[in-house]
Design a protein around this nucleic acid. Structure first.
Length: 285
DNA sequence: GCCACTGTTAGCAT
DNA sequence: CATGCTAACAGTGG
């Protein structure tokens, strides 16, 4: 479900409720949600106030007094919800954290149970490998660093875009949308991209992610923000989920293939593995 | 009912 | 080391 634009939307939606709020007693309804730290570690957060909310890749960081941080990953179907305590929680709610004096509680809801929570101790003493392994933020990386990423890579470009250790934040939907905008075939070898293609790719990553954030993300299935509101960027998807539909640029039929085990949508006319020179494009394009 | 599919990623095999 | 496939889980739709 949530990629960078959705997680960014969630973090922005949570801030007014969480920042400055005191956390109550954690109700961990599905203990395996908590990874690598003992359940007792949560007690250190109870009675402390949230100082700030941040996003790193697709993870949500809830920083608290005392230098401790809660790290949430929503994986496929995780949701962060703000509800009044009297609203009944359904069976997919895995964690409830009361927000003292605000008549609200934070709920982590996750149908498929892939999501996780772990915590950073005071001054970040306990390392969170999932966090440390992340590459540069997709919206922060400068062009030269991106170009360097592609040097000497054996795999295809989509595989690289999905690799969070290389670049953090893109997932299946936005990788396809970025590649369509950049007119690059998803199976093209990463190392074979020229300087010009890399530049278009870099610009496309920024353009697509920024636009998606402004539309509050894509809601395909379950995704909603903390208030339960969906995003509407899905209406602007040019290729993702549009197999058999027409390319908005050239009217060719959009195709669907598997890349790194993921459904991948692209326009066979606009996105070629081998790029024709401009003069040849006029002839054959 | 059964099978295929789903927005993520860790872990394992190659 | 790098790259590729599968499992972890629950629900939905054909």
């Amino acid at each position: 479900m949530p990629e960078l634009p959705e997680v960014e939307t969630i973090v922005r939606g949570l801030r007014p409720y969480l920042e400055g709020a005191e956390l109550g007693i954690f109700r961990l309804l599905f203990p395996p949600l908590l990874r690598r730290v003992p359940r007792a570690a949560l007690a250190a957060f109870e009675g402390t106030k949230v100082t700030s909310l941040k996003r790193r890749g697709k993870m949500i960081l809830v920083e608290c007094e005392g230098g401790r941080t809660l790290v949430f990953h929503l994986m496929m179907t995780g949701q962060m919800l703000i509800e009044r305590p009297e609203v009944p929680a359904d069976k997919h709610v895995r964690l409830i954290v009361p927000l003292i004096g605000r008549d609200r509680e934070l709920r982590f809801r996750d149908v498929r149970k892939f999501g996780f929570l772990c915590c950073l101790g005071p001054s970040g003493s306990s390392p969170v490998p999932e966090l440390e392994a992340l590459g540069p933020e997709a919206l922060d990386i400068d062009f030269r660093s991106l170009a360097r990423l592609f040097q000497g890579r054996g795999g295809c470009i989509k595989g690289l875009l999905l690799d969070q250790r290389a670049i953090a934040g893109l997932g299946n939907i936005y990788a396809d949308e970025v590649l369509f905008r950049a007119r690059i075939h998803p199976l093209k070898r990463a190392a074979s991209l020229g300087e010009e293609e890399l530049k278009i790719l870099w610009k496309s990553i920024r353009a697509i992610l920024r636009l998606a954030i402004s539309r509050k993300g894509s809601s395909i299935r379950d995704y909603t923000d903390p208030n339960g509101d969906p995003g509407d960027f899905q209406a602007l998807h040019k290729v993702y989920g549009r197999e058999g539909g027409k390319c908005p640029r050239c009217k060719a039929g959009i195709r669907r293939i598997k890349v790194s085990g993921r459904s991948t949508f692209y326009c066979p006319h606009c996105q070629k593995k081998v790029r024709l020179k401009k003069s040849m494009q006029r002839k054959f394009g």
